[in-house]
Design a protein around this nucleic acid. Structure first.
Length: 509
RNA sequence: GGGCCUGUAGCUCCAAUGGCAGAGCAGCGGACUUUUAAUCCGAAGCGUGUGGGUUCGAGUCCCACCGGGCCCA
C-alpha cells in the first residue's frame, strides 16, 4: 500500500447483520467507540508467551508473588468475575495463562474497562507474575490494552465447535476453540519440517517443479483442466512430480526431492482430498533396497517429532514404527489370502474367475498382473497392521518401475503399508528409454482398450532418458496420510487446514 | 453416480404416537476480592437449511432444491 486508501466506514445503519443481532450489537458499539477514540493499536510488544511463563516460574508457591513484571498478549477466552476481582484466561499460540485482575491493582476506571471486554477480544496485559491461593500461575495486571475487538461470539467454551462442516469451512473457529485442532496443525508443521530436514541432511536438494502443465503425467489419475489465455492453450494441474524430478536427476541433480501439492480430479472421502501433499525423492546410484532403509529412518524420525517415540497408537491399537520392517512380495501375500497357488503365469481366464469369486468385477483389458493386484487390494491391504514393505509389484501396474533383476513379470518396487493403508511407494527407477517407450505404448494400448487410468505418453521424458538416467531409487510419501497416522486422525480433512468443500450458498448471518 | 442418515438459539444438545419449541453454555441485568466449565439471583433469545405439498394442526409425514455425514461404485 503506497497510497492512502479511503478508510472503509464501519457500518452504521441497521442493515448490518452485526447491528441487528443482539449477540453482536453491543460488541459493535464498543468497536465503534474505540474507532471514534482513535482506533486500535498497530502493534504490541509482549515479553513472554504463556508457555514462557510456565517455564520461567515453575516453583512459585500458592499465594506467592514473583516480583517480576511481564507483558503477555492473546485472545481473551473466558472471564470469571468475582465482584472486585476477575479471573481471565488469555490464550496465545503457546498455551493459556490466567490474568488476575483486581480492582485495587488496576484502578477503578481500568477495572470497569476490563469488565467491558468480551470473550474473543485480543488483548495485551502487563503485570506481576503471581500464583493464586489455588495455585494457578497468573499475571496480576496493572495495565491492559484492547488490541482488536471480536465482533462475534465464540463457540461453546466447554464443548468447543463440533460440527464437522463448520470446523472445516471455518477452520479459524476450529483452531481458536479446539485445542486439538491446533495441536494437529502444529504437529503437521513439525512433520513436514522433519521430512525436509531428513532429506536435506542426506544431501537431497529441494526443488519446485511445475504445477501447471500441458500434459499431466507420472501417475494414473484424472487431472484438473484449466486454460492459459495468453498461450490459448489447455493446461492441466499436475497429478505427480515424478517425471520432472527424474529429468532433474538426468540433469545431474543426483539427490532431489519436492514436497508439493498434487491435484487429482477424483472423489472425496476419508483418505482422498482433490489437492493433497506428496513428497517425492530421487537418489542416483540407489535401488529400492536402499530406499527401504531410508523410509524406515524417515518414518521413525517423523514419529519422534510428532509423538515423542516410535511406538504410536492408531485407532486404539498400538503400532511399532521402529524398523526394520517386515518384507513380503505382493504375490506371496495374495496367495496366502486367496489360498491358491496363483502366479503371473496362471492363465488369465483362471485369474478372472478367481477375481469374480471374490466379488471384484474385472475389466476386459486386465492382465494377470492387474488381476493379482486387484486381489491384493481387496483381500490383503486392510489386513496389514504392523509396518510392512510389500514388494515386487507386477510390471503391468508399474509402468515407471524397473524390471526386477532376477524375476520375470515383476518390478523392483515396494509400497509401505501400516494400519491397513499405504504410506509410501518406491522403486528402482526404470531408466531404459526403450523399455520405458514400450511401457508407455502398453499404457496407450490399455487406454485405447478402455483403461481410464492408463498413463499418457510423455515424449520428452523418453528423450531425457535417452540422455541417460543413472540407476536411481525413487520414493513417494503421502504426507497427509502420514500426518493422519501420527496424529491418530481417521479423516484427511482433519489434517488439511482447508479441505476442499462444495461451494456454500452465501450466508450473511 | 447409487443407498442410508442428517440440518432446531451464537455454540453443545433435548422435543412418544403430527398437538402451544426447550435446556446448558455464551450474551444481557444484579451479588460476590482467590476463581478454574466459578457460584447464586433475574430477565431475555430460536418458529426448526430453502421452497412447495398433505393436514383442523408439521421440527416431526411427502416432494424438490441447498449443505453435511457414512457406506458402496
Amino acid at each position: 500500500m503506497t497510497e492512502d486508501a479511503p478508510r472503509p466506514e464501519t457500518p452504521e445503519d441497521d442493515s448490518s447483520p452485526l447491528e441487528s443481532s443482539p449477540l453482536t450489537r453491543d460488541r459493535l458499539a464498543k468497536y465503534r467507540r474505540v474507532m471514534d477514540a482513535g482506533g486500535f493499536p498497530y502493534s504490541f510488544r509482549r515479553t513472554d508467551t504463556a508457555s514462557d511463563l510456565i517455564e520461567r516460574f515453575p516453583d512459585l508457591e500458592p499465594g506467592a508473588s514473583s516480583g517480576e513484571t511481564v507483558t503477555v498478549a492473546g485472545r481473551l477466552m473466558n472471564t470469571r468475575e468475582m465482584g472486585k476481582l476477575i479471573f481471565a484466561v488469555v490464550s496465545d499460540l503457546s498455551g493459556k495463562i490466567q490474568l488476575f485482575v483486581d480492582k485495587r491493582t488496576l484502578g477503578d476506571e481500568a477495572f470497569d474497562a476490563f469488565r467491558d471486554l468480551d470473550a474473543g477480544d485480543w488483548i495485551g496485559a502487563t503485570g506481576e507474575v503471581i500464583v493464586t491461593k489455588r495455585g494457578e500461575l497468573s499475571v496480576r495486571i496493572s495495565a491492559f490494552e484492547l488490541l482488536q475487538k471480536s465482533l462475534r461470539p465464540l463457540p461453546d467454551k466447554w464443548h468447543g465447535l463440533k460440527d464437522v462442516e463448520q470446523r472445516s469451512r471455518r477452520r479459524y473457529l476450529d483452531l481458536l476453540a479446539n485445542e486439538d485442532a491446533r495441536t494437529v496443525a502444529l504437529t503437521r508443521a513439525k512433520i513436514v519440517s522433519e521430512l525436509r530436514r531428513q532429506f536435506e541432511d542426506r544431501g537431497y536438494v529441494e526443488v519446485e517443479t511445475p504445477v501447471l502443465l500441458a500434459q499431466a503425467t507420472g501417475a494414473t489419475a484424472k487431472p484438473f483442466e484449466t486454460r492459459h489465455s495468453a498461450l490459448d492453450m489447455d493446461m492441466y494441474l499436475r497429478i505427480a512430480t515424478e517425471l520432472y524430478l527424474k529429468r532433474l536427476v538426468v540433469g545431474g541433480i543426483e539427490r532431489v526431492f519436492e514436497i508439493g501439492r498434487i491435484f487429482r480430479n477424483e472423489g472425496i472421502d476419508a483418505t482422498h482430498n482433490p489437492e493433497f501433499t506428496m513428497l517425492e525423492s530421487y537418489e542416483a546410484f540407489a535401488d529400492f533396497n536402499d530406499i527401504m532403509t531410508l523410509v524406515e529412518e524417515v518414518v521413525v524420525a517423523c514419529a519422534v517429532v510428532a509423538t515423542g517415540g516410535s511406538e504410536i497408537t492408531y485407532d486404539g491399537r498400538g503400532v511399532n514404527l521402529a524398523g526394520p520392517y517386515k518384507r513380503a512380495t505382493m504375490l506371496e501375500l495374495t496367495r496366502g489370502a486367496v489360498g491358491e497357488d496363483v502366479d503371473y503365469d496362471t492363465p488369465v481366464h483362471e485369474l478372472r474367475a478367481l477375481v469374480l469369486r471374490h466379488g471384484i468385477e474385472p475389466e476386459d483389458h486386465w492382465g494377470s498382473g492387474k488381476l493379482i493386484d486387484a486381489l491384493f487390494d481387496a483381500l490383503v491391504e486392510e489386513t496389514l497392521w504392523e509396518p510392512i514393505f510389500v514388494t515386487e509389484h507386477p510390471i503391468e501396474t508399474s509402468p515407471l518401475a524397473r524390471r526386477h533383476r532376477d524375476k520375470p513379470h515383476v518390478t523392483e518396487r515396494f509400497e509401505l503399508f501400516i494400519a491397513g493403508a499405504e504410506y509410501a511407494n518406491a522403486f528402482s527407477e526404470l531408466n531404459d528409454p526403450f523399455d520405458q517407450q514400450a511401457r508407455f505404448e502398453d499404457q496407450a494400448a490399455a487406454s485405447a482398450a478402455g483403461d481410464e487410468e492408463a498413463h499418457p505418453i510423455d515424449e520428452d521424458y523418453i528423450r531425457a532418458l535417452e540422455y541417460g538416467l543413472p540407476p536411481t531409487g525413487g520414493l513417494g510419501i503421502g504426507v497427509d496420510r502420514l500426518v493422519m497416522l501420527l496424529t491418530d486422525k481417521h479423516h484427511i480433512r482433519e489434517v488439511i487446514l482447508f479441505p476442499t468443500m462444495r461451494r456454500q450458498k452465501r450466508d450473511d448471518s
